[in-house]
Design a protein around this nucleic acid. Sequence first.
DNA 1: ATTGAGTGAACGATCGTTCATTCAATATAT
DNA 2: ATATATTGAATGAACGATCGTTCACTCAAT
Lengths: 206, 206
Amino acid sequence: MQEQSDDDKEKPLAKRALTTQKRRKEIVEAAAACFITQGFHQTSIRDIAKRAGISLGNLYNHFSSKTDLIAEIAVLESDDQTVVNDILSEDGKVQDILARFIAVHFDELSKPENAVLAAEITSEAMRNPQIAEPFLENRAQLVARLASVLISPDLNYPEDTTEMAELILTLVQSTAARAAFQPGRKQKATLGALQSSVCRLVGLSD
Amino acid sequence: MQEQSDDDKEKPLAKRALTTQKRRKEIVEAAAACFITQGFHQTSIRDIAKRAGISLGNLYNHFSSKTDLIAEIAVLESDDQTVVNDILSEDGKVQDILARFIAVHFDELSKPENAVLAAEITSEAMRNPQIAEPFLENRAQLVARLASVLISPDLNYPEDTTEMAELILTLVQSTAARAAFQPGRKQKATLGALQSSVCRLVGLSD
DNA sequence: ATTGAGTGAACGATCGTTCATTCAATATAT
DNA sequence: ATATATTGAATGAACGATCGTTCACTCAAT
Protein backbone atom coordinates (compact mmCIF):
# COMPACT_ATOMS: atom_id res chain seq x y z
CA MET A 1 0.00 0.00 0.00
CA GLN A 2 2.78 2.43 -0.83
CA GLU A 3 1.86 5.42 -2.92
CA GLN A 4 4.40 7.94 -4.12
CA SER A 5 2.97 10.11 -6.85
CA ASP A 6 4.12 13.57 -7.92
CA ASP A 7 1.00 15.46 -6.85
CA ASP A 8 0.81 14.02 -3.36
CA LYS A 9 0.86 17.49 -1.92
CA GLU A 10 -2.89 17.76 -2.39
CA LYS A 11 -3.41 14.68 -0.26
CA PRO A 12 -1.56 15.35 2.97
CA LEU A 13 -3.55 12.64 4.74
CA ALA A 14 -0.49 10.69 5.68
CA LYS A 15 -0.03 8.11 8.37
CA ARG A 16 -0.16 10.79 11.03
CA ALA A 17 -3.52 12.32 10.18
CA LEU A 18 -5.03 8.93 9.61
CA THR A 19 -4.18 7.48 12.97
CA THR A 20 -5.29 10.71 14.58
CA GLN A 21 -8.71 10.37 13.02
CA LYS A 22 -8.87 6.75 14.08
CA ARG A 23 -7.85 7.58 17.62
CA ARG A 24 -10.51 10.23 17.85
CA LYS A 25 -13.14 7.70 16.85
CA GLU A 26 -11.85 5.26 19.44
CA ILE A 27 -12.20 7.88 22.12
CA VAL A 28 -15.78 8.66 21.11
CA GLU A 29 -16.70 4.99 21.20
CA ALA A 30 -15.08 4.51 24.58
CA ALA A 31 -16.91 7.54 25.90
CA ALA A 32 -20.25 6.30 24.58
CA ALA A 33 -19.70 2.93 26.25
CA CYS A 34 -18.88 4.63 29.56
CA PHE A 35 -21.84 7.00 29.32
CA ILE A 36 -24.20 4.10 28.71
CA THR A 37 -23.12 2.15 31.76
CA GLN A 38 -22.39 5.04 34.11
CA GLY A 39 -24.14 8.12 32.79
CA PHE A 40 -22.58 11.42 31.72
CA HIS A 41 -21.77 12.87 35.08
CA GLN A 42 -20.72 9.67 36.77
CA THR A 43 -18.13 9.04 34.08
CA SER A 44 -14.71 10.57 34.59
CA ILE A 45 -12.19 11.54 31.95
CA ARG A 46 -9.96 8.88 33.45
CA ASP A 47 -12.63 6.24 32.86
CA ILE A 48 -12.82 7.18 29.20
CA ALA A 49 -9.06 7.33 28.71
CA LYS A 50 -8.64 3.95 30.38
CA ARG A 51 -11.35 2.37 28.24
CA ALA A 52 -9.87 3.87 25.07
CA GLY A 53 -6.47 2.55 26.10
CA ILE A 54 -4.74 5.90 26.02
CA SER A 55 -3.25 8.20 28.57
CA LEU A 56 -5.12 10.89 30.45
CA GLY A 57 -3.16 13.73 28.93
CA ASN A 58 -3.48 12.48 25.38
CA LEU A 59 -7.25 12.63 25.53
CA TYR A 60 -6.95 16.38 25.83
CA ASN A 61 -5.02 16.43 22.55
CA HIS A 62 -8.23 15.28 20.86
CA PHE A 63 -10.99 16.84 22.96
CA SER A 64 -10.59 20.11 24.77
CA SER A 65 -13.05 19.33 27.56
CA LYS A 66 -15.48 16.78 28.90
CA THR A 67 -18.38 18.95 27.80
CA ASP A 68 -17.13 18.84 24.22
CA LEU A 69 -17.10 15.07 24.35
CA ILE A 70 -20.64 14.91 25.67
CA ALA A 71 -21.79 17.25 22.94
CA GLU A 72 -20.08 15.15 20.28
CA ILE A 73 -21.79 12.00 21.52
CA ALA A 74 -25.15 13.72 21.55
CA VAL A 75 -24.70 14.92 17.98
CA LEU A 76 -23.58 11.51 16.72
CA GLU A 77 -26.49 9.76 18.43
CA SER A 78 -28.96 12.18 16.87
CA ASP A 79 -27.35 11.74 13.48
CA ASP A 80 -28.16 8.04 13.61
CA GLN A 81 -31.69 9.06 12.72
CA THR A 82 -30.55 9.53 9.13
CA VAL A 83 -31.63 5.97 8.37
CA VAL A 84 -35.24 6.39 9.42
CA ASN A 85 -35.29 9.78 7.75
CA ASP A 86 -34.42 8.10 4.46
CA ILE A 87 -37.17 5.54 4.88
CA LEU A 88 -39.72 8.32 5.10
CA SER A 89 -38.39 9.73 1.84
CA GLU A 90 -38.88 6.56 -0.15
CA ASP A 91 -41.69 5.98 -2.62
CA GLY A 92 -44.51 3.56 -2.00
CA LYS A 93 -47.83 3.13 -0.27
CA VAL A 94 -48.28 5.20 2.88
CA GLN A 95 -49.07 2.26 5.11
CA ASP A 96 -45.94 0.46 3.94
CA ILE A 97 -43.72 3.47 4.53
CA LEU A 98 -45.19 4.03 7.97
CA ALA A 99 -44.88 0.37 8.89
CA ARG A 100 -41.25 0.25 7.82
CA PHE A 101 -40.46 3.49 9.60
CA ILE A 102 -42.02 2.28 12.83
CA ALA A 103 -40.38 -1.13 12.69
CA VAL A 104 -36.89 0.18 12.02
CA HIS A 105 -37.07 3.06 14.46
CA PHE A 106 -38.53 0.83 17.14
CA ASP A 107 -35.91 -1.86 16.65
CA GLU A 108 -33.13 0.67 16.94
CA LEU A 109 -34.43 2.51 19.99
CA SER A 110 -35.50 -0.60 21.87
CA LYS A 111 -31.90 -1.72 22.14
CA PRO A 112 -31.06 -1.03 25.78
CA GLU A 113 -27.84 0.83 24.98
CA ASN A 114 -29.66 3.22 22.70
CA ALA A 115 -32.56 3.64 25.10
CA VAL A 116 -30.24 4.46 27.97
CA LEU A 117 -28.20 6.89 25.91
CA ALA A 118 -31.32 8.56 24.56
CA ALA A 119 -32.69 9.02 28.06
CA GLU A 120 -29.39 10.50 29.17
CA ILE A 121 -29.36 12.91 26.25
CA THR A 122 -32.98 13.89 26.79
CA SER A 123 -32.34 14.63 30.43
CA GLU A 124 -29.21 16.57 29.63
CA ALA A 125 -30.84 18.54 26.83
CA MET A 126 -33.39 19.97 29.24
CA ARG A 127 -30.59 21.75 31.07
CA ASN A 128 -27.84 22.21 28.52
CA PRO A 129 -28.62 24.29 25.40
CA GLN A 130 -25.49 22.97 23.68
CA ILE A 131 -27.09 19.52 23.77
CA ALA A 132 -30.65 20.68 23.14
CA GLU A 133 -29.83 22.48 19.91
CA PRO A 134 -28.75 19.58 17.66
CA PHE A 135 -31.25 17.33 19.42
CA LEU A 136 -34.23 19.56 18.66
CA GLU A 137 -33.00 20.40 15.18
CA ASN A 138 -32.80 16.76 14.13
CA ARG A 139 -36.15 16.06 15.69
CA ALA A 140 -37.78 18.93 13.82
CA GLN A 141 -36.41 17.58 10.58
CA LEU A 142 -37.81 14.14 11.31
CA VAL A 143 -41.19 15.61 12.22
CA ALA A 144 -41.30 17.55 8.97
CA ARG A 145 -40.57 14.42 6.93
CA LEU A 146 -43.18 12.43 8.78
CA ALA A 147 -45.75 15.19 8.36
CA SER A 148 -45.13 15.27 4.62
CA VAL A 149 -45.83 11.55 4.47
CA LEU A 150 -49.09 12.08 6.32
CA ILE A 151 -50.18 14.69 3.79
CA SER A 152 -49.13 12.96 0.58
CA PRO A 153 -51.85 10.31 0.20
CA ASP A 154 -55.56 10.80 0.17
CA LEU A 155 -56.23 9.80 3.73
CA ASN A 156 -59.07 12.12 4.67
CA TYR A 157 -57.01 14.09 7.07
CA PRO A 158 -57.99 17.72 7.47
CA GLU A 159 -56.27 18.18 10.83
CA ASP A 160 -52.88 19.61 11.71
CA THR A 161 -50.49 17.05 10.27
CA THR A 162 -47.46 18.51 12.02
CA GLU A 163 -49.11 18.12 15.40
CA MET A 164 -50.02 14.54 14.52
CA ALA A 165 -46.50 13.84 13.28
CA GLU A 166 -45.09 15.13 16.57
CA LEU A 167 -47.48 12.92 18.49
CA ILE A 168 -46.70 9.81 16.46
CA LEU A 169 -42.96 10.35 16.72
CA THR A 170 -43.25 10.82 20.45
CA LEU A 171 -45.32 7.66 20.71
CA VAL A 172 -42.93 5.53 18.67
CA GLN A 173 -39.80 6.72 20.47
CA SER A 174 -41.13 6.50 24.01
CA THR A 175 -42.79 3.15 23.40
CA ALA A 176 -39.49 1.80 22.10
CA ALA A 177 -37.70 3.14 25.17
CA ARG A 178 -40.22 1.41 27.42
CA ALA A 179 -39.92 -1.83 25.48
CA ALA A 180 -36.14 -1.77 25.84
CA PHE A 181 -36.45 -3.29 29.30
CA GLN A 182 -39.10 -5.85 28.51
CA PRO A 183 -38.35 -9.48 27.64
CA GLY A 184 -37.88 -10.05 23.90
CA ARG A 185 -41.16 -11.87 23.51
CA LYS A 186 -43.23 -9.04 24.96
CA GLN A 187 -41.31 -6.62 22.75
CA LYS A 188 -42.86 -8.11 19.64
CA ALA A 189 -46.34 -7.69 21.09
CA THR A 190 -45.58 -4.09 21.97
CA LEU A 191 -44.37 -3.40 18.45
CA GLY A 192 -47.55 -4.94 17.08
CA ALA A 193 -49.73 -2.77 19.30
CA LEU A 194 -47.70 0.25 18.26
CA GLN A 195 -48.12 -0.48 14.56
CA SER A 196 -51.89 -0.89 14.75
CA SER A 197 -52.20 2.11 17.03
CA VAL A 198 -50.50 4.39 14.55
CA CYS A 199 -52.70 3.02 11.79
CA ARG A 200 -55.73 3.85 13.86
CA LEU A 201 -54.43 7.34 14.52
CA VAL A 202 -54.03 8.19 10.85
CA GLY A 203 -57.28 6.51 9.82
CA LEU A 204 -55.92 3.41 8.14
CA SER A 205 -57.16 -0.15 8.56
CA ASP A 206 -54.76 -2.24 10.58
CA MET B 1 -52.64 25.24 72.50
CA GLN B 2 -51.60 23.59 75.75
CA GLU B 3 -52.71 20.01 76.18
CA GLN B 4 -52.04 18.04 79.32
CA SER B 5 -54.18 14.91 79.46
CA ASP B 6 -53.55 11.80 81.54
CA ASP B 7 -52.80 9.49 78.64
CA ASP B 8 -50.29 11.73 76.96
CA LYS B 9 -47.81 8.92 77.09
CA GLU B 10 -49.25 7.48 73.93
CA LYS B 11 -48.47 10.66 72.02
CA PRO B 12 -44.80 11.39 72.56
CA LEU B 13 -44.70 13.65 69.52
CA ALA B 14 -43.36 16.64 71.38
CA LYS B 15 -41.71 19.76 70.07
CA ARG B 16 -38.55 17.85 69.25
CA ALA B 17 -40.01 15.22 66.95
CA LEU B 18 -42.17 17.77 65.23
CA THR B 19 -39.41 20.12 64.22
CA THR B 20 -37.35 17.14 63.13
CA GLN B 21 -40.09 16.05 60.80
CA LYS B 22 -40.38 19.57 59.47
CA ARG B 23 -36.66 19.85 58.92
CA ARG B 24 -36.62 16.61 57.03
CA LYS B 25 -39.28 17.93 54.71
CA GLU B 26 -37.34 21.13 54.18
CA ILE B 27 -34.29 19.14 53.14
CA VAL B 28 -36.29 17.08 50.67
CA GLU B 29 -37.75 20.21 49.10
CA ALA B 30 -34.36 21.86 48.86
CA ALA B 31 -32.94 18.73 47.27
CA ALA B 32 -35.75 18.57 44.74
CA ALA B 33 -35.16 22.19 43.78
CA CYS B 34 -31.45 21.54 43.32
CA PHE B 35 -32.02 18.36 41.34
CA ILE B 36 -34.39 20.17 38.98
CA THR B 37 -31.96 22.95 38.15
CA GLN B 38 -28.71 20.97 38.29
CA GLY B 39 -29.53 17.29 37.99
CA PHE B 40 -28.81 14.51 40.47
CA HIS B 41 -25.12 14.12 39.92
CA GLN B 42 -24.28 17.75 39.45
CA THR B 43 -25.83 18.63 42.78
CA SER B 44 -23.56 18.40 45.81
CA ILE B 45 -24.59 17.75 49.40
CA ARG B 46 -23.30 21.21 50.14
CA ASP B 47 -25.68 22.69 47.56
CA ILE B 48 -28.63 21.02 49.24
CA ALA B 49 -27.58 21.98 52.75
CA LYS B 50 -27.04 25.58 51.70
CA ARG B 51 -30.44 25.74 49.99
CA ALA B 52 -32.14 24.20 53.01
CA GLY B 53 -30.40 26.71 55.26
CA ILE B 54 -28.72 24.14 57.46
CA SER B 55 -25.18 22.99 58.03
CA LEU B 56 -23.42 20.29 56.09
CA GLY B 57 -23.09 17.95 59.03
CA ASN B 58 -26.69 18.29 60.12
CA LEU B 59 -27.94 16.99 56.82
CA TYR B 60 -26.38 13.66 57.69
CA ASN B 61 -28.47 13.56 60.87
CA HIS B 62 -31.53 13.29 58.63
CA PHE B 63 -30.26 11.38 55.60
CA SER B 64 -27.49 8.84 55.75
CA SER B 65 -26.26 9.37 52.20
CA LYS B 66 -26.84 11.24 48.98
CA THR B 67 -28.20 8.08 47.39
CA ASP B 68 -30.86 7.85 50.09
CA LEU B 69 -31.94 11.39 49.32
CA ILE B 70 -32.19 10.69 45.60
CA ALA B 71 -34.26 7.58 46.32
CA GLU B 72 -36.58 9.55 48.61
CA ILE B 73 -37.17 12.18 45.92
CA ALA B 74 -37.88 9.51 43.33
CA VAL B 75 -40.42 7.83 45.61
CA LEU B 76 -42.17 11.09 46.47
CA GLU B 77 -42.35 12.12 42.84
CA SER B 78 -43.89 8.79 41.88
CA ASP B 79 -46.35 9.04 44.76
CA ASP B 80 -47.72 12.22 43.25
CA GLN B 81 -49.52 9.96 40.80
CA THR B 82 -52.06 9.18 43.52
CA VAL B 83 -54.28 11.98 42.20
CA VAL B 84 -54.61 10.62 38.70
CA ASN B 85 -54.99 7.13 40.11
CA ASP B 86 -58.03 8.32 42.03
CA ILE B 87 -59.53 9.87 38.93
CA LEU B 88 -59.42 6.52 37.19
CA SER B 89 -61.30 4.99 40.12
CA GLU B 90 -64.23 7.39 39.96
CA ASP B 91 -67.61 6.50 38.55
CA GLY B 92 -68.94 7.97 35.33
CA LYS B 93 -68.83 7.63 31.59
CA VAL B 94 -65.63 6.21 30.17
CA GLN B 95 -64.94 9.12 27.86
CA ASP B 96 -65.34 11.56 30.75
CA ILE B 97 -63.00 9.61 33.01
CA LEU B 98 -60.41 9.31 30.28
CA ALA B 99 -60.66 12.97 29.37
CA ARG B 100 -60.26 14.04 33.00
CA PHE B 101 -57.36 11.67 33.52
CA ILE B 102 -55.55 12.92 30.45
CA ALA B 103 -56.14 16.58 31.23
CA VAL B 104 -54.97 16.35 34.83
CA HIS B 105 -51.99 14.12 34.14
CA PHE B 106 -50.94 16.25 31.20
CA ASP B 107 -51.24 19.49 33.16
CA GLU B 108 -49.10 18.11 35.95
CA LEU B 109 -46.36 16.60 33.79
CA SER B 110 -46.14 19.50 31.37
CA LYS B 111 -44.91 21.77 34.15
CA PRO B 112 -41.21 22.13 33.33
CA GLU B 113 -40.07 21.29 36.88
CA ASN B 114 -41.97 18.03 36.82
CA ALA B 115 -40.87 17.20 33.30
CA VAL B 116 -37.23 17.76 34.16
CA LEU B 117 -37.44 15.74 37.35
CA ALA B 118 -39.28 12.93 35.61
CA ALA B 119 -36.61 12.78 32.91
CA GLU B 120 -33.92 12.71 35.55
CA ILE B 121 -35.65 9.87 37.41
CA THR B 122 -36.26 7.91 34.21
CA SER B 123 -32.64 8.18 33.26
CA GLU B 124 -31.50 7.21 36.73
CA ALA B 125 -33.92 4.31 36.99
CA MET B 126 -32.35 2.64 33.97
CA ARG B 127 -29.12 2.27 35.91
CA ASN B 128 -30.13 2.21 39.57
CA PRO B 129 -32.47 -0.59 40.73
CA GLN B 130 -33.19 1.29 43.96
CA ILE B 131 -34.82 3.98 41.83
CA ALA B 132 -36.35 1.64 39.27
CA GLU B 133 -38.24 -0.42 41.83
CA PRO B 134 -40.72 2.15 43.20
CA PHE B 135 -40.89 3.78 39.80
CA LEU B 136 -41.98 0.62 38.00
CA GLU B 137 -44.24 -0.46 40.84
CA ASN B 138 -46.24 2.76 40.75
CA ARG B 139 -46.40 2.64 37.01
CA ALA B 140 -47.71 -0.91 37.02
CA GLN B 141 -50.44 0.14 39.43
CA LEU B 142 -51.44 3.01 37.17
CA VAL B 143 -51.47 0.76 34.12
CA ALA B 144 -53.71 -1.74 35.91
CA ARG B 145 -56.19 0.96 36.84
CA LEU B 146 -56.23 2.34 33.33
CA ALA B 147 -56.68 -1.11 31.86
CA SER B 148 -59.67 -1.75 34.12
CA VAL B 149 -61.24 1.44 32.84
CA LEU B 150 -60.72 0.27 29.28
CA ILE B 151 -62.50 -2.99 30.02
CA SER B 152 -65.43 -1.69 32.02
CA PRO B 153 -67.62 -0.18 29.30
CA ASP B 154 -68.91 -1.84 26.21
CA LEU B 155 -66.40 -0.42 23.78
CA ASN B 156 -65.91 -3.27 21.37
CA TYR B 157 -62.41 -3.99 22.46
CA PRO B 158 -61.29 -7.58 22.17
CA GLU B 159 -57.58 -6.77 22.24
CA ASP B 160 -55.09 -6.85 25.05
CA THR B 161 -56.23 -3.98 27.26
CA THR B 162 -53.07 -3.98 29.40
CA GLU B 163 -50.90 -3.49 26.33
CA MET B 164 -53.16 -0.65 25.22
CA ALA B 165 -53.12 0.88 28.70
CA GLU B 166 -49.31 0.82 28.67
CA LEU B 167 -49.29 2.46 25.28
CA ILE B 168 -51.75 5.18 26.25
CA LEU B 169 -49.93 5.96 29.48
CA THR B 170 -46.65 6.16 27.61
CA LEU B 171 -48.25 8.46 25.07
CA VAL B 172 -49.77 10.80 27.65
CA GLN B 173 -46.65 11.08 29.77
CA SER B 174 -44.17 11.56 26.96
CA THR B 175 -46.41 14.01 25.13
CA ALA B 176 -46.70 16.06 28.31
CA ALA B 177 -42.93 16.01 28.72
CA ARG B 178 -42.50 17.25 25.16
CA ALA B 179 -45.12 19.96 25.66
CA ALA B 180 -43.33 21.18 28.77
CA PHE B 181 -40.95 23.21 26.63
CA GLN B 182 -43.48 24.56 24.18
CA PRO B 183 -45.14 27.97 24.51
CA GLY B 184 -48.38 27.88 26.51
CA ARG B 185 -50.54 28.43 23.47
CA LYS B 186 -49.17 25.46 21.59
CA GLN B 187 -49.57 23.37 24.74
CA LYS B 188 -53.35 23.62 24.51
CA ALA B 189 -53.28 22.41 20.91
CA THR B 190 -51.06 19.51 21.90
CA LEU B 191 -53.42 18.54 24.70
CA GLY B 192 -56.32 18.66 22.25
CA ALA B 193 -54.53 16.42 19.78
CA LEU B 194 -53.68 14.07 22.62
CA GLN B 195 -57.28 13.86 23.80
CA SER B 196 -58.68 13.07 20.38
CA SER B 197 -55.86 10.65 19.66
CA VAL B 198 -56.62 8.59 22.73
CA CYS B 199 -60.30 8.58 21.82
CA ARG B 200 -59.39 7.26 18.40
CA LEU B 201 -57.19 4.58 19.94
CA VAL B 202 -59.95 3.18 22.14
CA GLY B 203 -62.60 3.51 19.47
CA LEU B 204 -64.54 6.46 20.80
CA SER B 205 -65.80 9.43 18.82
CA ASP B 206 -63.79 12.57 19.52
C1' DA C 1 14.04 21.62 12.32
C1' DT C 2 9.24 21.46 13.32
C1' DT C 3 5.09 19.49 14.45
C1' DG C 4 1.88 17.09 17.18
C1' DA C 5 0.55 12.49 19.27
C1' DG C 6 1.60 10.37 23.45
C1' DT C 7 2.80 10.01 28.52
C1' DG C 8 2.03 10.38 33.59
C1' DA C 9 2.98 13.41 37.34
C1' DA C 10 1.07 17.32 39.46
C1' DC C 11 -2.34 21.10 40.74
C1' DG C 12 -6.12 23.16 42.83
C1' DA C 13 -10.85 22.46 43.53
C1' DT C 14 -14.54 19.89 45.00
C1' DC C 15 -16.63 15.78 46.31
C1' DG C 16 -19.19 12.58 50.00
C1' DT C 17 -18.58 11.57 54.49
C1' DT C 18 -16.93 11.59 59.36
C1' DC C 19 -15.79 13.78 63.48
C1' DA C 20 -15.59 16.28 67.99
C1' DT C 21 -18.26 19.41 70.06
C1' DT C 22 -22.14 22.50 71.66
C1' DC C 23 -26.59 22.97 73.40
C1' DA C 24 -31.54 22.74 74.01
C1' DA C 25 -35.15 19.31 74.64
C1' DT C 26 -36.47 15.17 77.00
C1' DA C 27 -36.27 11.37 80.42
C1' DT C 28 -35.17 9.90 84.92
C1' DA C 29 -34.14 10.21 89.72
C1' DT C 30 -34.57 12.48 93.87
C1' DA D 1 -40.78 20.37 91.77
C1' DT D 2 -35.89 20.33 91.29
C1' DA D 3 -31.70 18.36 89.94
C1' DT D 4 -29.34 15.26 86.93
C1' DA D 5 -28.54 12.21 82.97
C1' DT D 6 -29.46 11.30 78.29
C1' DT D 7 -30.75 12.14 73.89
C1' DG D 8 -30.32 13.96 69.32
C1' DA D 9 -30.43 18.28 66.40
C1' DA D 10 -26.99 21.45 64.94
C1' DT D 11 -22.34 23.13 63.73
C1' DG D 12 -18.11 23.61 60.84
C1' DA D 13 -13.55 21.83 60.56
C1' DA D 14 -11.21 18.01 58.70
C1' DC D 15 -10.21 13.72 55.87
C1' DG D 16 -9.20 11.03 52.04
C1' DA D 17 -10.62 10.38 47.48
C1' DT D 18 -11.49 11.88 43.09
C1' DC D 19 -12.45 15.30 39.85
C1' DG D 20 -11.21 18.19 35.34
C1' DT D 21 -7.41 20.20 33.65
C1' DT D 22 -2.53 21.59 32.88
C1' DC D 23 2.18 20.80 32.46
C1' DA D 24 6.95 19.43 31.06
C1' DC D 25 8.62 16.13 28.45
C1' DT D 26 9.60 12.18 24.87
C1' DC D 27 9.63 10.64 20.36
C1' DA D 28 8.20 9.44 15.76
C1' DA D 29 6.38 11.62 11.59
C1' DT D 30 6.78 15.44 8.62
